Simulated scan of single mutants.
Amino acid sequence: MNLPRPLPVMIFAAGFGTRMGALTQDRPKPLIEVAGRALIDHALDLVTAYTPPRTVVNLHYRADQLAAHLDGRGALLSHETPDILDTGGGLRAALPLLGDGPVLTMNSDAIWRGPNPLPHLAAGWDGAHMGALLLCLPPDRALGHAGPGDFTLAPDGRLSRGPGLVYSGVQIIDPACLAGIPETVFSLNRAWNRLAAEGRLFGAVYPGHWCDVGHPEGIALAEDMLAQTHVRD
């Protein structure tokens, strides 16, 4: 089977990390360590193994620290200044660095146990029918996430809002769906809602485990999850 050509990757790393409390008073959230390594490094491990043509990281809060950490790592930096742009605005601002066509985006505050989520998701992308393809998990395999889920998955793979699956923070999206949104600062939820109404929002289920490290309790949960991986290995 011929694998699809790797897509450009954008890592969202500009946020303030307010849910982390005191841990982000002196550093950006992507530099918080899990199992002795910064969150951004865990993300870059997955990206490097995927071998995309370009990797872009957006920066805003304590951008100088993160830029210094990424120096020499081969990532292009999209500085959001003076204002942070949210996910939709951030993606739009980074498009000159990413190039044309669909983009694989990922959050930097998660830890994974299982197959690399990037090629796993890319194998299911069909740009002729999809505007976005979101990687999701059932709640019992989404550590550190409270609630019944974000999306309902139909038998044909289309997503709608409602309980069922948790969005993992990894997606493939066609930036053309951002057209018609006039604001500079906006969430990708705006684009997803439009795509869902058009029947072009799709989902795929990740077969492994995932941990949200957007809050302090997630650090220990992620480290325990990784320890279980090592025991099984």
Rank of each mutant, 00 (worst) to 15 (best):
A75L: 11
S168A: 07
M10Q: 15
L97A: 08
G15V: 07
V56C: 03
F12D: 12
L143Y: 10
P119N: 02
D71H: 15
D26E: 13
C177V: 10
D174F: 11
L66H: 10
L221E: 03
T24W: 00
I181Y: 06
H79L: 15
A49G: 15
Y61D: 08
Q171Y: 15
G88E: 04
D45P: 05
A13M: 13
P117E: 02
E217Q: 13
D83W: 10
A220N: 02
V185C: 13
H120I: 06
L44D: 04
L7M: 12
H230Q: 05
G203A: 10
V170T: 10
L121A: 09
A38M: 02
L221R: 00
V34H: 00
D224C: 04
A75C: 15
F202R: 01
A123Q: 11
S168T: 10
T87P: 02
D86K: 12
G157W: 09
G99S: 05
G199M: 07
D150F: 06
V231L: 14
L188Q: 12
M225Q: 01
G199A: 11
P119L: 11
L137V: 08
V170A: 15
L97N: 03
A197F: 11
A197T: 07
T184Y: 01
L39D: 02
P119C: 12
S168L: 04
I181L: 08
N2W: 04
G127F: 06
D156Y: 05
H145F: 09
G99W: 07
R190C: 14
P117M: 06
P138N: 06
L77M: 08
A110R: 05
D26Y: 07
F151Q: 03
R19T: 08
G169L: 14
L121W: 08
V57I: 15
V57H: 14
A38T: 00
G214F: 07
L59N: 07
R54V: 15
S78G: 14
I219T: 01
A142I: 08
G15P: 11
S78Y: 13
H79I: 14
R113H: 03
L143P: 02
L95G: 15
Y50C: 03
Y61I: 01
P117S: 06
Y61H: 11
H42K: 00
V56M: 06
D233Q: 06
V103C: 13
E198Q: 15
G203Y: 11
D126P: 06
G218A: 07
I11G: 02
M20K: 02
